[in-house]
Amino acid sequence: MLKKVVKNAEEAIVDITDGATIMLGGFGLCGIPENSIKALVNKGVKNLTCISNNAGVDDFGIGLMLKTRQVKKMIASYVGENAEFERQLLSGELEVELIPQGTLATRCMAAGYGIPAIYTPAGVGTEVAEGKETREFDGKTYLMEHAFKSDFAIVKAWKGDTNGNLIFRATSRNFNPLMAMAGKITIVEVEELVQPGDLDPDMIHTPGIYVNRIFKGVHYEKRIEQVTVTKR
């Protein structure tokens, strides 16, 4: 019998220790593993390397872990919404590697597909290319970018079954299925945890083989960065 279901976030992250490399799914605050982030803050693990598209905002998401100085290094593509992040970066307290968003996504994908590296045109001729191997294909230059190696991947799905099969919802999918494939240990929090057979196999985005631990998250705040509406 598969034993993937854990009680809660605390149990899911029990073996994450100081110095770990962790991937965290989400785009902005959309589709972030809220429960697991809070548990990491409460646990107080330090010197983390975090791989995530963004760094949250000052008081939510990964921003919570920045405030408590738990992050040693951040690998991200866009960090414009977080003033504390920018302050720590400019003062040199926080190590930061900014990489193109497509490169970030594809390096996750490569890890999950068992491919050691990929070639991409993104960043050629820029700071991003410094020290990296390049190669020409059909007259165009590409950078070699390595698959990520990450101790843990922590993602948020909409629905999951106890076998670890996952379905994501709308644009909260983003990096989540890619990171789910890319961690040595993959931890998933879901809004709805169901039994095997309850999900249509044709609708599964992430097959359970990639998932090590799964739990039902609680009290989702789902904060929105920019509420934009059409007036009636």
Binding site: Y78, V79, L98, I99, Q101, T103, T126
Partner: peptide, 17 residues
């Protein structure tokens, strides 16, 4: 440099392709 760091987001991928 030294003033504002927001990151490239998807811009480098977009302009390269």
């Amino acid at each position: 440099p030294g003033k504002m760091v927001k990151g490239m987001g998807g811009a480098m991928d977009l302009v390269a392709s």
